[in-house]
Design a binder for these strands. Structure first.
Lengths: 189, 189
DNA sequence: AATTAATGAGTGAGTACTCACAACAGGATT
DNA sequence: AATCCTGTTGTGAGTACTCACTCATTAATT
């Protein structure tokens, strides 16, 4: 073994992919992604055998990055309200300060390029966060509805909130509070 | 003039485009769209000079179709609550029963293929509906926030609600009420 | 017959992906 | 130290394919 394949380049490729896909959509060419990472196009295929493999690796990378950010700010609060609000704030903040990650992740989530296997593997590594979300869900008025409606509402409101905070940062705090109030006062029983 | 260019084929092409783009994304090929409409590929380009023209025509077509559906159900209610609820129901119902229209429209809304000019022209034809939305916005707690945050929250919640109604129609009414409650009790002051 | 709509094989640009080769970092041999 | 040797990474022109779009031809109507 002479040269170790550099983790650095792998990360650069993933970051470039997230940046360019955020701007151009998932159809962004492998040539432009490689150029953005400062490597030749062939090199991309040494790290990710096909573009589909890249999609799945990127999904995993972004989800785990988000999860790490959430964990850092998941202090234990006495009230459920406080706990959920901390989760909300951490989520919004991650989206705002990693906008291209956020945009690309949202595209990947609804794309059929990401396999069920990848989704499962990632979900299993996020059990601790899912746990908090579940506690929230169990104690609010949307829990009567099947299949993660509360989760989806949380995500939809967060996405909208992030868009507005980015577009008009001066009112960032106002959007953050308002978005949370819609979710919380609308869903609490 | 020997043959009139048929409005029928134009509609068929737009409908096919909406169907196929809902399934495959905006990148769906012109060949498949023409095939879906039962015409040759060349014919598509007689009706829409470029694919970008098609995108813009489709955006206009779908928005006006939605607007027509909303107008039909915009009975005058005494209470503001009733008025907004009627708008909400009409919107959800249109999305559920025209799912491919709804999906494609959502993609077009965030796409840069649709020009600002198209958006403006369409918006000017929707002034009556915008008026009701404005009356709602003026009387709720989100109106203090700039730039249509209330509108965006409405749309985001409606999108989520439609997804769940389609996935699980048995609980359709429950999702519809719950979605509206989140919007209304969360945003009313 | 005159005119225009409709057609679909053809065109060039762009795509994901390949592969023969260059560049390189050690360890072994002088 | 200086040289080869070996196995791996990095490269980018090349390949097969798909795409939006064209245009000479055919079909349809008055």
């Amino acid at each position: 073994m002479a040269l170790p394949r550099s983790e650095e380049k792998r990360i650069a490729l993933l970051a470039s992919a997230a940046d360019i896909m955020a701007a151009q959509g998932l159809g962004a060419s492998t040539a432009s992604i490689a150029r953005g990472a400062g490597v030749a196009e062939g090199t991309l295929f040494r790290y990710f055998a096909t573009k589909d493999v890249l999609y799945n690796a990127l999904y995993t990378h972004l989800k785990l990055d988000l999860a790490a950010a959430l964990r850092q700010h998941m202090a234990v609060h006495d009230s459920l309200d406080g706990q959920v609000r901390a989760l909300w704030d951490a989520y919004i903040d991650w989206g705002v300060s990693n906008l291209s990650f956020f945009k690309t992740l949202n595209q990947l989530v609804v794309s059929d390029k990401v396999t069920d296997e990848t989704r499962c593997t990632v979900a299993s590594q996020l059990s601790d966060i899912k746990c908090v979300a579940q506690a929230c869900s169990d104690n609010n008025g949307l829990s009567a509805l099947p299949g993660g409606f509360a989760d989806a509402v949380f995500m939809a409101l967060a996405e909208t909130t992030i868009q507005f905070v980015v577009r008009d940062p001066a009112n960032g705090q106002a959007y953050k509070s308002a978005g949370f109030r819609v979710f919380w006062s609308g869903s609490v029983r």
